Amino acid sequence: MYLKYILACVVLLTIKANSQIVEDKKNFRAADSLLKEHSFSVHKDNYFLTGIPLDEDITRNTADVKYQVSFKLRLNSKPLWGGFFPYLMYTQKAFWDIYANSKPFSEINFNPGVAIVRPFYLKGGRLTYGTISLEHESNGRDSIYSRTWNMLAFSLKSQVSPRWTVGLRGWIPLVDKEDNPGLTKYVGYGEASATYQIQPGRWSADVLFRKGSGLINYGSLQTQLNWRPYKDENYYLTLQWFVGYTESLIDYQEHKSMIRLGFTIKPENMGIF
């Protein structure tokens, strides 16, 4: 009789130990998805694109170059309390009137921030990153040309299938309403993103939708098609279309529709958000 109880206890403990080992392996693999990157790595897309407007006349002053530089730095190779990894982030997006006579920069937006990232698996083994970030975005100008805001953001990004990666991100905007009247209506309170691998390793498509605070007004949609010429090189030929508001901070109240073509360097993995 006692032998049956002992055997039952052994079986239960074995099952529990095995499940704990599986869970530990899952946690290790999720964290390893961050650790296999270099501590200094690409954050958002780095690109250099040139294009024309679709909603106004094409002139030397309306065609432009748009480029973005974005990187992140993982501060520790071991997680903090709760399994979070700390990061510093920086993104700079510029609009260059390269076809105008004096070739001025019409706008440069600066976006530094700090974040903590928790990698984990959803049901079905779907790798997911949960991120909390505190960010600042401004154009570095003063007087009536100053545009600045801060956000406390929360995001989830998940690889839901071998071809699909989706993300949801919401934020609490902190805006100086005297200098930037109505900015919150245009930047909104969240965004959704998706990437589809049309032909893995070669062709992919990205969609980024930002919702303004109005019922049907404001917000923006950015879509792009990416082609990777060489599988061993991490750069793409990109066709990008942007329509909506807040592509740049200086003109956040103006509706834009631009199509651009150029080169993009993408994060090696799915990116933290």
Results as ranks from 00 to 15, higher is better:
K4N: 14
Y5D: 14
T14A: 13
I15C: 11
I15D: 08
I21E: 13
V22N: 12
E23D: 12
K25W: 07
K26G: 10
D32M: 10
F40Q: 06
S41T: 15
H43I: 03
K44W: 07
D45N: 13
N46I: 10
F48D: 03
L49I: 09
T50F: 12
D55G: 06
D57C: 06
T62K: 05
Y67P: 02
Q68M: 11
K72C: 05
R74W: 04
S77V: 07
S77M: 09
P79H: 08
L80F: 13
L80G: 11
M89F: 04
F95H: 13
I98L: 15
Y99N: 09
S102R: 15
S102N: 14
S106V: 07
S106D: 14
E107P: 01
I108T: 14
N111W: 00
G113I: 02
L122R: 04
Y129H: 10
Y129I: 01
G130F: 14
L134A: 12
E137I: 00
N139E: 04
I144K: 12
F154D: 02
V160D: 01
T165P: 01
G167D: 01
R169Y: 07
V175T: 03
L183M: 15
K185D: 15
V187D: 00
G188H: 02
G190D: 05
A194F: 03
T195D: 05
I198C: 06
G201K: 07
R202G: 03
W203P: 00
S204H: 04
F209C: 04
K211L: 12
G212P: 04
L215V: 15
N217W: 07
Y218D: 05
L221Q: 13
T223A: 15
L225K: 06
N226Y: 02
N226W: 01
W227V: 11
E233M: 11
Y235S: 08
Y236P: 01
T238C: 03
L239Y: 11
F242T: 05
T246A: 13
T246E: 12
S248N: 12
L249S: 01
L249K: 00
D251N: 14
E254Y: 10
H255K: 15
I259W: 02
N269W: 07
